[in-house]
């Protein structure tokens, strides 16, 4: 049987690619990115590499795809009221300046010849810190819930560091309506600057760092943190797509094929946040971060195959978990809606 129709020629990378694989990667990362509020470069790049893209093309193509995918997810999240545009715009300034400072730091380390190990291990340490923070926050929240302690309308929360940070009264003070917070404008600017420096330094989009920073340091509810972070990823992704294209390392055809899958996946991931509690999202996010960290350690010690298997396995399991949340929640909502309509007809 001739299977050539399943392969598409990529004129810039000069390779024939199994296009259903591209659609599947786009779909999976759309589901996960829409649910966690991150780009997911750590998932897409190895996937593209496995399909046959040279590494340099995999990174550039991935960044452009992330920008388009984040746009689709942001549109859906904004309908739910999960995007705090005011906070997003305030943070964009800090993020951009931070990314540039991080890139300068990388160039300095490059000059003194310490770039490789420092960057990789700083990344691993930060991922470990995030995972530890997320899981200990969950443990604390469970403990508080058992004791019957609740934090306002949002329910029980573990770490509430943001309450201390909100006491900083440096003008201008700003009210972020969608997030329901009132704080100094310097707080999100400084947080976005620090996460931007780290993102620029580590050469990543920054969603992995910004999403927990929004929750723990600024006090944004998990759902709004997901939507607002996607808005940030969209802007930084478009900028990244432009610069990577100037370097000639992008395959536009692959971006479009992946976006068709991402369009469906992003809807599922985004709508699933409606049926998930904040801590459900945080826990799954912590697990993803942990797997990302282990895969980097494996890569560092040249266990490339094991790292790829771990990443693809993580993508598969988290994707199924999110799809179950979405379809169960949607089915229940439709059942309840039908019951309400039947009761109304009887009355």
């Amino acid at each position: 049987m001739d299977a050539s129709w399943l392969y598409m020629y990529m004129p810039i990378a000069g390779v024939d690619i199994f296009w259903p694989g591209l659609v599947l990667i786009g779909y999976s990362v759309g589901v996960i990115g829409g649910f966690f509020g991150m780009g997911g470069a750590w998932m897409v790049t190895p996937g593209l590499n496995i399909l046959g893209f040279p590494m340099a093309f995999a990174i550039g193509t991935d960044i452009a795809h992330i920008a388009g995918k984040s746009m689709i997810s942001t549109i859906r999240h904004s309908k739910f009221g999960n995007v705090d545009y005011k906070l997003g715009f305030v943070m964009v300034v800090g993020t951009m300046v931070g990314i540039e400072c991080g890139a300068q730091l990388v160039m300095y380390l490059e000059r003194i010849g310490r770039i490789g190990p420092v960057v990789r291990w700083v990344y691993v340490v930060f991922l470990l810190l995030i995972a530890v923070m997320v899981f200990s926050d969950y443990a604390k929240a469970v403990k508080k819930k058992k004791q019957g302690i609740a934090d306002g309308e949002k329910g029980t929360e573990g770490f509430t560091w943001y309450k201390t940070l909100h006491k900083i009264n440096i003008p201008p003070m700003m009210h972020f309506k969608a997030s329901g917070i009132y704080c100094s404008a310097w707080l999100p600017m400084v947080v976005s600057f620090i996460t931007g420096v780290l993102a620029g330094f580590l050469g990543i989009g920054g969603g992995l760092l910004r999403m927990p920073a929004l929750i723990y340091f600024i006090g944004v509810p998990t759902h709004v943190a997901v939507g607002t972070d996607l808005f940030e990823v969209m802007i930084s992704g478009l900028y990244g797509a432009f610069t990577y294209t100037l370097k000639g390392r992008i395959e536009l055809v692959a971006v479009f094929v992946m976006l068709t899958g991402a369009a469906i996946g992003a809807q599922i991931g985004t709508v699933a946040t409606k049926y998930a509690k904040g801590y459900g999202i945080r826990l799954a996010f912590g697990s993803a971060v942990l797997c990302c960290m282990i895969s980097i350690i494996l890569k560092q010690f040249k266990f490339q195959t094991s790292a790829a298997v771990l990443i693809l396995g993580t993508i598969g399991i988290i994707c199924i978990y999110i799809m179950v949340i979405m379809f169960r929640g949607a089915a229940q909502e439709l059942r309840e809606k039908k019951n309400r309509e039947q009761v109304t007809v009887r009355v």
Binding site: T260, A263, A330
Partner: peptide, 27 residues
């Protein structure tokens, strides 16, 4: 991104799900 986003938004609105409100519960 915009075309696919709005197209999928149109398709999803036909499912009968409430896609304009959600309750924020952390735990």
């Amino acid at each position: 991104g915009c075309t696919l986003g709005f197209l999928m938004d149109f398709i999803m609105s036909r499912t009968g799900l409430d896609l304009k409100s959600r309750k924020i519960v952390e735990h």
